[in-house]
Design a protein around this nucleic acid. Structure first.
Lengths: 229, 229
DNA sequence: TCAAAAGTGTTCTAGATACACCCATGT
DNA sequence: ACATGGGTGTATCTAGAACACTTTTGA
């Protein structure tokens, strides 16, 4: 046997697919594109791409995300490997799904047009190619779990945000409504938000104070296991 | 372009590696084998194998687990896809890691000898090939998260088990000690264990009652999110 | 002055924790 | 009789849930 070359084993096409979540202040959305290659060309799809011989799946996902959004440092996390033999109707492809969180305002209109991309509210998704609907549902489930225990919700908001915005975000993610008093008590008690002097004035006459997430303060809590919600 | 055949893209070797956990009444252990092929032949390793063109990664993992343990219905769960370009020193291989939970007593001595397999206490693992140590650590972390919210701890115990055994299991997984009174209160309050008339008499003169997990009773709680610990 | 959103405190409840003694039985 | 592990109850504490009114300000 040839030492250590694994020559006799099957090679397989490996892809990444990205579930890109965004929040517009009211609803949680996913970014979909019109698939640009056969089969199923023209159907709504997640943004994806093949993994090259010389890149990790993380690198491939980062590349795909940059291509579609133009954003450099996107929060991104591996979700799951989907590998059913017939999941892709054109051949054997296993796909490593990633979910990403972006501030919807950072996303360039221009790229959106180029890729025929569109934001869809979760729960109002169109039919998707292959197993992409399953991927989105699993991503949503994973997002719900993670966002309660890690400070990743902030990735979906602008750098400075108000408490009502943050509350709306959690309400959208969990499809529930929260008590304002209990919410602000719990979040502020964590001590990881810094209040600014500045107010956001678009949504109300009175205005709501901006806050920023303080990663340093968070670091010191991290070990004990925090609950954001 | 050839419609829908993805001809121009790179194909990659895909493997599965299995972290097999077992519990011997005192410590949580992982089953390792002496690697049987080059490179790194003879070093301690997770049990693994390549994914064939005509099988999913779940199927490949099931196959690999059956090969090593002889057990048919093993509890198994996909952990993570490891894909660093240089993770395998002999070529580009991405690996989908799975963790599995087995009742250590079910495991045949014969197969253990055949594969030169051995149980190691976590925390006393030998050097492992490639990135397998990282895989085990990630599996352990995932096990801790899952076992608190899903009734999978029972997979590590015999069908009938005593409360002291169950408590020892959780103590081993979390490397902590628990209060006997609080533990039995909480577990029994869930109402998913059925007490048998029979007693286990090996560990004490008095004997401890056996219990069995009742999957039906668990089903009805499942939606509300249970906490086992 | 009024409409519309922001902001804030107290009581109650349930689940978690802390804690120590008696029981059963084989030797 | 005694050594060994099995089994149980109560008081306290704490985090989460329920709940409504006042403030600000642009139009």
């Amino acid at each position: 046997m040839d030492i250590g070359k694994y020559k006799s084993n099957d090679k397989i096409l490996v892809a990444v697919d990205c579930i890109i979540f965004g929040f517009d202040g009211g609803a949680l959305k996913a970014l979909l594109i019109k698939r640009s290659l056969q089969p199923e060309k023209g159907k709504w799809s997640l943004m994806g791409g093949f993994v090259n011989q010389n890149e990790s799946t993380d690198e491939a996902a980062t590349r795909v995300l940059r291509q579609l959004t133009g954003i450099e440092n996107i929060y991104m996390e591996q979700l799951y490997c989907f590998s059913d033999v017939n999941r892709d109707t054109a051949g054997r492809v296993i796909s490593i799904a990633y979910f990403a969180l972006i501030n919807i305002a950072d996303y360039s209109e221009q790229l959106q047009a180029e890729h025929e991309a569109k934001w869809f509210e979760l729960g109002q998704l169109p039919d998707l190619v292959f197993d992409h609907t399953v991927m989105v549902l699993k991503a949503q489930e994973s997002l719900r779990e993670k966002v309660a225990r890690q400070p990743i919700g902030f990735e979906l908001l602008p750098n400075k945000f108000t408490l009502p915005q943050l509350q709306s975000l959690y309400e959208a993610i969990y499809e529930t409504s929260l008590d304002t008093r209990n919410f602000s008590k719990r979040i502020l008690a964590l001590g990881v938000l810094n209040k600014l002097d500045e107010k956001e004035k678009k949504n109300s006459r009175r205005g709501a104070f901006y806050y920023v997430f303080d990663a340093i303060k968070y670091k010191s809590l991290e070990t004990n296991g925090v609950r954001f919600i």
